[in-house]
């Protein structure tokens, strides 16, 4: 799970997710700002991820009732963490991602499928951080989160792709 191949796959996938941000016509300003911020990830360095996350937090402060900036905060924090599992910022980012997911859960218009996907991704990053200890501990949680996400919304592409990546990573790890 910590192999460079796996990280590279996740990075390519993260960029795909980044490029496929849905547009909400009711909040063009917010969408524009999110789009501008995400565009900086075309050079996906750790610094650009951290700046993107910081900008998403500023956008979230501007639109506190919107779920999309929160979704991006959690998603980009997890993207950074899966790429840099032992960076000094990672633990704080994971804590923030967990809190953001909790906040999203309590919002009325929350997409439960997206929330399950992010939760699965969060557990997945924990495994990447420490496969020996966390592999057996969080494996079930990752799988159940993605399964639940796809049960609620069978067309959730993010959940499908993350689940696929996770299976591939586990196959590499277990040699099966």
């Amino acid at each position: 799970m910590t192999s460079q191949t796996f990280k590279h796959q996740v990075l390519v996938f993260a960029l795909f997710v980044m490029a496929s941000v849905s547009i909400n016509a009711q909040q063009p300003c917010m969408q524009e700002l999110i789009g501008q911020s995400l565009s900086k990830l075309q050079q996906p360095t750790p610094e650009s991820f951290l700046n993107c996350i910081a900008e998403m937090k500023r956008i979230d402060a501007m639109f506190p009732d919107s779920i999309q900036p929160k979704h991006q905060i959690a998603l980009q924090s997890l993207n950074f963490s899966v790429m840099n599992p032992h960076a000094p910022q990672t633990d704080n980012l994971l804590t923030e991602a967990e809190q953001t997911i909790m906040t999203m859960t309590q919002m009325k218009n929350a997409d439960q499928s997206e929330i399950c996907t992010l939760r699965g991704f969060l557990y997945m990053v924990r495994i990447v951080q420490n496969p020996a200890q966390n592999g057996q501990r969080y494996y079930i949680d990752v799988m159940q989160s993605f399964e639940k996400a796809l049960k609620i919304n069978p067309d959730n592409q993010l959940a499908k792709d993350l689940q696929h990546k996770f299976f591939e990573g586990m196959k590499q790890a277990t040699g099966k």
């Binding site: 951290l50 700046n51 910081a54 900008e55 500023r58 402060a61 501007m62 910022q89």
Partner: peptide
């Protein structure tokens, strides 16, 4: 406090 997010509220202007 390394990585503190400092910004102007109501804008995207800021830095770490």
């Amino acid at each position: 406090l390394v990585g503190t997010n400092v910004f102007i509220v109501g804008s995207i202007d800021g830095c770490l």
